[in-house]
Write a protein that binds this DNA or RNA. Structure first.
Lengths: 223, 223
DNA sequence: GTGGACGCTATACAGGCGTACAGTCGGCTA
DNA sequence: TAGCCGACTGTACGCCTGTATAGCGTCCAC
């Protein structure tokens, strides 16, 4: 009905919040309804009473997180707080949690998260056309790679955090990662000629059978 | 014992290969021992007979894939076939499958895959020091981000493939992605001054509470 | 005051999971 | 030929999962 933040304080909200946190950490497959119920301090049956099923609860969480995310984004735009990408996440633990949730949802195959991914690709494609039209001829591919990397590095959360020695879903860790990202985005790593040469070398290789076909045997190939 | 490719043709090898393929596609949690047995054309009991448990089977697969990967890599280095990174994967469907397996293993928390990740970070760190020492002051952070992105984009396989309209774990799709990556690595996307400004803006934000603490309530924050 | 609805709990059920085990078949050795 | 050993199967057990349902207490409308 109204603003979602006013519906809360209820057990239903506690369930949803607990589910968001647990789904973000362990995915839908790694989280049981009993886990969620315990984290929310209610009985497992109440989940079903309020949400009908685990899948419906997941969809409710998806909708809530995504709606809140665009809501927060719009607020920031109105208040003119927009700075660099990745700026505000650092100040807002909730956004960090929501990022983590969306990343997990992407891996779990959530349709709404997938739609968000597609939106980001489209937006990035347009951004490239406007701000960096000469970096590539394949706008769509470039945008897909960019968005895939951005979300993918969050999917590799555990390993990046371990390498950094700090959790990237804390404010300090996220800032550290964003700093490295800023370095990365502002400096070319490869000689353009080397890149072009690599592209030429790869082009004739597009026609090979697919790797996941039923009959293939990874161990049967020569020395 | 000897060269792993000579131990095969057996049911044990068929089980292992089926497990590698299914683990790569659905992860360990999304794959049952009955699935693997059926794919290998044997009874579920035989998995236990040969490998002891599902977890032990996974470790065997981890070891096999990782060993074969370094073996292939060494062969390529010896034969002097080394060209651009991402070149050989295109010609070898098995390597594509193994990449996919390792990516999934990373997400599933495989210790051996994590060790591989750490090795890659170390190697990348050294590469930066030698080939691009001026792009950052945080070599470790830069390397972690780089490796995290490289593996992360594979973790986002479904979504990147959907945006591209072609499966990135087929030869053609991988080439398309690698081309966009080459563009990406060879061109700066952000003005260095803008990046520095972003970094300055983020620095004072490092001290905030953690987002995943037990008591926090994502819905309880103001409009 | 009373009836009904709602929030909520406790218990039970069916299915799928990893695992365990008894037993069969076939080939190798003495 | 007799005996053994490893590969392999079928079945069953116990556990955990999501789901279903009956019943309890409380609050509000009439």
């Amino acid at each position: 009905m109204g603003d979602p933040v006013f519906e809360d304080l209820t057990a239903r909200a506690r369930i949803r919040d607990a589910a968001i946190r647990l789904f973000a950490e362990g995915g839908t497959g790694g989280t049981t309804v009993r886990d969620i119920a315990q984290a929310a301090g209610v009985s497992p049956g109440l989940l079903r009473h309020h949400f009908g099923s685990k899948e419906a609860l997941r969809e409710a969480c998806d909708g809530y997180v995504l709606d809140r995310l665009v809501q927060i984004k719009e607020e920031l735009l109105l208040e003119n707080k927009m700075a660099s990408p990745g700026f505000l996440p650092s100040v807002h633990p909730t956004i960090l949690l929501f990022y983590r949730y969306v990343t997990r949802a992407l891996l779990d195959g959530s349709p709404r998260a997938a739609a968000l991914f597609d939106d980001m690709v489209l937006l990035t494609e347009q951004w490239i056309g406007k701000n960096a039209p000469d970096v590539t001829t394949d706008y769509r591919g470039f945008a897909a790679v960019l968005v895939g990397m951005q979300s993918g590095i969050l999917a590799m959360h555990d390993h990046v955090s371990r390498a950094l020695g700090v959790d990237i879903f804390t404010a300090g860790g996220h800032v550290r990662m964003a700093g490295a990202l800023a370095d990365f985005y502002s400096h070319p790593l490869l000689d353009p000629e080397f890149a072009a040469q690599a592209r030429r070398a790869m082009e004739p290789l597009q026609s090979t059978e697919t790797p996941t076909a039923a009959g293939d045997d990874p161990g049967a190939e020569g020395a």
